[in-house]
Design a binder for these strands. Sequence first.
RNA 1: GCGGGUGUAGCUCAGCUGGUUAGAGCGCCAGAUUGUGGAUCUGGAGGUCGUGGGUUCAAGACCCAUCACUCGCCCCA
Length: 414
Amino acid sequence: MAKLQPVRGTHDLLGEDARRHRHVVETALATAARYGFSEIQTPIFEFTEVFARTLGETSDVVSKEMYSFTDRGGETITLRPEGTAGVARALISGGLTQDLPLKLFYQGPMFRYERPQKGRQRQFHQIGVELLGVPAPQADIEVITVGADILDALGIFDGVVLELNTLGDTESREAYRTALVDYLIGHKDGLSEDSLRRLEVNPLRILDSKDEGDRAIVANAPSFGDYLNAASQDFYGTVKAGLEAVGVPYRQNDRLVRGLDYYCHTAYEFVTDRLGAQGTVMAGGRYDGLVEMMGGPSTPGVGWAAGIERIAMMIEAPAAPARPVAVIPVGEEAAIAAIKLSHDLRKAGIAVEMGYSGNLGKRMKRANKLGASHAVILGETELENGVATVRDLDSGTQTEIALGKIGDHLKAEV
RNA sequence: GCGGGUGUAGCUCAGCUGGUUAGAGCGCCAGAUUGUGGAUCUGGAGGUCGUGGGUUCAAGACCCAUCACUCGCCCCA
């Protein structure tokens, strides 16, 4: 470390960036609240097992991207790489299965040891929702709809496309998986190196390979739709009908898959072409097997997560904070009076800036730079008369106003 | 983890085929203006040219390594 610098893939957030970030979180939380979601904050670290068990030992996230360490008590701990596992753990350990159905919203930092890129950092932030305890497709519809509504509230819905697919129930998925592997083994010679590896680990993933050779083979592969049993078809049909009813457009994407075993039925992603290689803005699916896999009672669930940084890059800049009023003392005597006046005005709900040094000219200059709407000048002559000079910095006009009435005057002006 | 690009002041960048004291604009500080800002003018601060090696009489420029950012792959939000 030659120079003091932030750890690779981490960033400081300030000014407009911080405002964008906050705006995403607040908009999402407020929107989700209208759908009955309430916030849950789970710890930033969990026992490593929580993630290893749920994400699968073979997944990239678990096998090479986790920030894991042994703490001073000898426990194996991992900084959370995603939010669902922690929520599922909380459901089990907190006995929340008594309160089903549950609609939870979360937000916060996640950690993955990945190569940083635009829209991909090692510490990144997600918002997400989980709807637990509802086996019916109405839950899927509601979860996708709240996501769409959030993107709409953030003004980026027109920059995004909802891609939708179904993985069917376990029976359908196993049947398809077998058929797909049989087919792919027959074309083994033409598959890319990556896909040969996927064939072992996660064959469904080959469906969305970007390799041209793979694509040619995949084009003639058996179709998932042919392997869906009646129940799975019904389920998916209801989800689609629901989305149509609420007017959320979607694009069927047969190649959209989820790697992990506990995913079933609905899989979806809101994607964009505005962020380069990082096209996925919000993604999720149904995970009926997850809670049981973690050792809890069989509990269906559906949810999504979205990258705050990615969304923050897409939205319009949020409104800047309200313009402050600059309180300017002139001379020693006025200093304390100015502190009191500032305090009173702030108590009255007005944003006040009062510099720490400088003469009137310098303070005026600073007030201008801060974008102050008014300067409230408090000098000896004003003090004697119990007034302050209130100058409108846009028009340049100024009047003397009694100290007790300044708050009201300023509020009336704005 | 793999492949490509970039790295000069707080910011955006210039710096010719290596040549002597590294520049501009914006921003910052100060003064013109010791109770009145925005404009203008004047002056000033700020750079081990990402870092470490190497080649050369001479390196910001060339070579190697390394760090960071960036684009794509992998994976994913």
